[in-house]
């Protein structure tokens, strides 16, 4: 599998971008006295197979942006194109993982049935469905928990179930909203490595939103740095760290430190 060549500028890596965001703006309660501009102007592209992180302080409009990218929210102006076509609803080849797994998983369904939901929607037959469930649970390194309910599992395992469910529909792109913000530090490292492995094995494009600069540097090929609300793109930073990355090795490297410092400067001078 071809990894992006860091010597080539990111924008030249692939032909058409999978996702293209053009002068996107979003105001809540537009036209009322409570009008609240969450996103002022955001533009960026995501190439096929790329891992892009979007960082910004709390309240910067990251969740708003992600909801616009997924087709859940209609932007006030600007355009989002997924695989060339402007977004109308949530595209078939796109999956979303929300921050709060305890709210996005269905507690009345077992793990197997949670993961089966998108397969049932797609009309996949019983046998194929079961095989596929095993496959994605294996991909997120979940052992024999199919018959358990989500609330019987630890937070980290629940988020793995949510990721497995998102992968079940074989998406081209995965959108994640602070997916590791609600778990403890060790689990967080495990999940970060997991998502890198999954991405490598399945060759999918990932856009991950986070407020954690270290996490963004560790995961991303490119980082879109947002200003505080109403957000604009402050800078798009290339992350030419080599892969595969390891928590200890990568994070203690000099290049990591430099990037981290640069991002810190950007974030602290914005707002």
């Amino acid at each position: 599998m071809a990894r992006p060549d860091p010597s080539v500028a990111a924008s030249e890596r692939a032909g058409d971008p999978v996702l293209s965001v053009r002068t996107l703006a979003k105001a809540y309660d537009a036209g009322t006295s409570r009008e609240n501009l969450a996103i002022a102007e955001v533009s960026f592209d995501v190439a096929k197979g790329e891992f892009v992180c979007v960082v910004g302080p709390s309240g910067a409009g990251k969740t708003t942006l992600l909801r616009c990218l997924s087709g859940l929210l209609v932007p006030t102006s600007g355009e989002v194109r997924f695989e060339g076509t402007p977004l109308r609803a949530v595209p078939d080849r796109l999956s979303v993982v929300f921050q709060d797994y305890s709210r996005s998983l269905f507690p009345w369904l077992t793990v197997n049935r949670n993961v089966a939901v998108p397969l049932r929607v797609a009309g996949v037959g019983k046998q194929q469905r079961e095989a596929r469930i095993q496959e994605v649970l294996h991909a997120v390194r979940l052992g024999d928990v199919g018959r358990s309910y989500p609330w019987q599992l630890s937070g980290g395992m629940q988020q793995r179930v949510a990721i497995a469910r998102a992968l079940a529909q074989q998406p081209d792109m995965l959108l994640m909203d602070e997916p590791f913000a609600s778990v403890d530090a060790q689990t967080r490292f495990d999940l970060e490595d997991l998502i890198l492995e999954v991405r490598r094995e399945l060759d999918i494009t990932v856009v991950l939103v986070t407020h954690d600069i270290d996490e963004a540097v560790y995961l991303a090929d490119r980082i879109v740095v947002l200003t505080g609300a109403p957000s604009r793109v402050q800078e798009i930073v290339d992350v030419p760290l080599e892969r595969p990355r390891t928590q200890l090795g990568t994070r203690s490297s000099e290049a990591f430190g430099r990037l981290r410092r640069h991002l810190m400067e950007l974030v602290t001078t914005s707002s």
């Binding site: 929300f98 709210r103 929607v121």
Partner: peptide, 22 residues
């Protein structure tokens, strides 16, 4: 929970399935 309804949309559930399953 509105996030559950968003999840239903993200999983491409029809209106009927959303009512039944969520």
């Amino acid at each position: 929970d509105p996030l559950k309804l968003d999840t239903a949309k993200v999983l491409h559930m029809s209106a009927l399935r959303t009512v039944r399953t969520v």
